[in-house]
């Protein structure tokens, strides 16, 4: 693809990405027999906001999982004060995943899913939910924290997390990548494609588009 028109457009994202990503909105209480809430980093604040709109019996049928991800301040005690039926805390997404899979595997029809945190976090949790057969129409997502992206290099197929810039150098194969507005829920990643394949000596300016 040609990207010569990139120069001079500060907010350039290729494609119609609204057709190709997880719809994010604001967490609202849904009717359900069980609630599964997964919050990463600043997502804790979205959960506290959600709590302002819930009745007390909401939390009696809720799994609340918190992944602080070393993001300060830690909100553990504030979340525990909501008195969820089950509370879990895992330091990072990697540590959380086996437990999240277990929760999803045991979830019954009528369960509702709430996910909040960075877009990368939301994407990976939705990927797991999809693999567990959870209907996306029974789920809500709210992005909190930086707008960084998880991308897959289309050339070497390597993944990179927390990408803030356009373009970005692939940390695996070294190709300079355009982050396209093309998102795969299955891979939980945006697509990265060589930005200067026609002439590799042409290096477009790097901009912080996703921060």
């Amino acid at each position: 693809m040609d990207n010569s028109h990139l120069a001079g457009n500060d907010d350039y994202i290729e494609g119609e990405e609204r057709f190709s990503q997880i719809p994010c909105s604001t967490l609202e209480p849904m009717d359900g027999t069980c609630h599964i809430i997964l919050a990463q980093g600043e997502g804790a604040l979205a959960v506290l906001d959600l709590a302002k709109k819930t009745s007390s019996d909401f939390w009696q049928k809720t799994h609340l999982a918190y992944v602080p991800d070393n993001i300060e301040p830690n909100r553990t005690s504030q979340l525990q004060d909501l008195n969820p039926r089950w509370f879990y805390e895992w330091p990072t997404l990697d540590a959380a995943l086996p437990h999240v899979r277990e929760i999803f595997a045991n979830s019954k029809q009528g369960s509702r899913l709430y996910v909040t945190g960075t877009h990368s976090f939301i994407g990976i949790i939705f990927q797991q939910a999809h693999n567990a057969g959870i209907d996306p129409y029974e789920a809500l997502a709210e992005r909190r924290g930086p707008k960084t992206r998880r991308i897959q290099c289309v050339h070497c197929k390597g993944f990179m997390d927390n990408v803030a810039t356009q373009p970005v150098t692939c940390s695996h194969c070294g190709v300079l990548l355009l982050v396209r507005g093309h998102y795969s829920r299955r891979l939980a990643a945006y697509q990265g494609v060589c930005i200067n394949a026609e002439d590799t000596s042409e290096i477009p300016e790097t901009k912080e588009l996703f921060s």
Partner: peptide, 24 residues
């Protein structure tokens, strides 16, 4: 012509056409 099955597999009609300009 410049699309990846490996990336697009599992997508719906609107998702895999997301990169096409103007037509949406």
């Amino acid at each position: 012509a410049d699309w990846s099955l490996d990336f697009d597999i599992g997508m719906n009609f609107f998702e895999w056409h997301a990169p096409v300009p103007l037509a949406h």
